[in-house]
């Protein structure tokens, strides 16, 4: 079972955990990516996330399905924010439920690592003295 979402409004952790909990899943692994207040020594004012939504959802579904095929996991949830976020805000939540912890940890790491490589979402870091699209330039 999967739950994939791009959201323009605040992500909340507890409903994601509630969705994942069940008696058959003895291991629930959660990754929460938040906005850091500093990048390379510079103070971050805000991040602006933009997504190619239809493709982002389909790429996130692919990741969840691949993870379900690779590891014995029961449920995978991937929620990602768009819009303007400030330090401390939640940008991404990934929850994996499995019978045992190894599969949950492995699938969760796979999901976030792959998301960062393939899902068409972009973030612009805005500092006090400038701004930059992350990873855009060599």
């Amino acid at each position: 079972m999967t739950d994939i979402k791009i959201s323009a409004t605040a992500l909340t952790v507890q409903p994601c955990i509630d969705w994942a909990l069940s008696a058959k899943s003895g291991g629930i692994d959660i990754f929460i990516g938040t906005v850091r207040d500093m990048t390379k020594g510079k103070k971050v004012v805000r991040l602006e996330f933009e997504a190619y939504e239809s493709m982002a959802v389909s790429e996130m579904k692919k990741i969840a399905n691949e993870a379900m095929a690779k590891w014995p996991v029961h449920k995978i949830l991937i929620h990602h924010r768009t819009g303007v976020l400030v330090p401390g805000d939640i940008a991404v939540i990934i929850v994996v439920a499995a019978a045992h912890r190894d599969a949950a940890f492995d699938a969760c790491r796979y999901a976030i690592d792959t998301l960062k490589k393939t899902v068409p979402i972009w973030k612009k870091e805005v500092f006090e003295d400038g701004e930059e699209w992350v990873a855009a330039r060599p």
Binding site: F49, A51, H80, V92, P120, W122, K123, W133, A136
Partner: peptide
């Protein structure tokens, strides 16, 4: 058709 610059989600 879409142009996809280096992605940076997460």
């Amino acid at each position: 058709v879409a142009i996809i610059p280096p992605v940076s989600g997460g």
